[in-house]
């Protein structure tokens, strides 16, 4: 029972902060970017599973490396970021499967939040809250940068600094996300809650509230379903999100 409680708490925090970040990523047309980045973390996840340390800690340097790699390749080659992402992300999967023990493959690909310990839970809560407040602080600035960089500069907003915070938030959320739903499914943590929220909310604050709530609620219900069915929790969390999204289509409000 205590294990279930820890899993649910961890899930609620990761789901919520991923839903919050998703509202920014969707408005920047980057809803899918978390996907390739989480694929890139697979070697890190593999290392964490082999040597028995926290999956998020293993994943984090690889997201950072991935973002850096795509950024530097974009400058060097001038190829579109989307194309470079396509070039790099599968390498993550390929490298991981060179040394990932096959019995650990399921955890690496679809995550496992059902065995988190107390320290991992505390670490997740601390990181989620830190990222939550960081996003809150830069939110309106990033929205303005997205609308017009010149307007943002006219307001004395430091574009590079704020974009850095944005990328840092993505990196941490991806690293937390792979712990819960693995290298394959993390994009959905960021994308599904906001898509459901867009169907229901009528202004930005409502989108944010709904997205955070749906993110947390899918994690909660997915983990609860795991408890009763013993099916893998990661996929159940994502399917819960999909069901919320489908329901939201019927409740769509026209504004």
């Amino acid at each position: 029972m205590e294990q279930l409680f820890l899993s649910i708490i961890t899930g609620i925090f990761i789901g919520g902060v991923a839903g919050y970040l998703g509202t920014l990523m969707l408005s920047r047309r980057m809803a899918l970017a978390a996907g390739p980045l989480s694929h890139l973390t697979l070697p890190g996840i593999a290392l964490a599973l082999i040597y028995g340390f926290d999956v998020s800690l293993g994943a984090f340097p690889f997201v950072i490396l991935g973002i850096f790699f795509i950024w530097i390749l974009e400058i060097k080659t001038k190829l579109p970021m989307e194309a470079l992402t396509a070039v790099t992300f599968a390498s993550g999967v390929a490298v991981a499967f060179l040394f990932l023990p096959i019995e650990q493959a399921e955890t690496a690909l679809v995550g496992d939040i059902t065995k988190v310990n107390f320290i991992e839970t505390m670490l997740t809560i601390a990181l989620s809250l830190a990222i939550f407040f960081l996003i809150k602080k830069v939110y309106s600035k990033l929205i303005l940068i997205n609308i017009s960089e010149d307007m943002a500069r006219a307001e004395d907003i430091d574009i590079e600094k704020n974009n850095f915070f944005y990328l840092l938030s993505i990196a941490v959320v991806v690293a937390l996300g792979v712990k819960m739903v693995g290298g394959l499914l993390t994009a959905a943590l960021v994308a599904i809650p906001i898509c459901a929220a867009r169907n229901i909310g009528k202004n930005l604050s409502e989108y944010i509230y709904f997205s955070v709530f749906f993110g947390s609620f899918s994690a909660f219900s997915g983990i609860l379903l795991f408890y009763f069915t013993r099916l893998p929790a990661g996929p159940l969390i994502i399917i819960s999100g999909t069901v919320i999204f489908l329901l939201s289509v019927f409740f769509k409000r026209n504004v």
């Binding site: 969707l26 997205n146 609308i147 017009s148």
Partner: peptide, 15 residues
């Protein structure tokens, strides 16, 4: 300052 075009503003669902 008001710029010429703001093509991305409609991506942000705000009031």
């Amino acid at each position: 300052y008001v710029p010429q075009r703001l093509p991305f503003i409609k991506d942000v669902p705000m009031s």
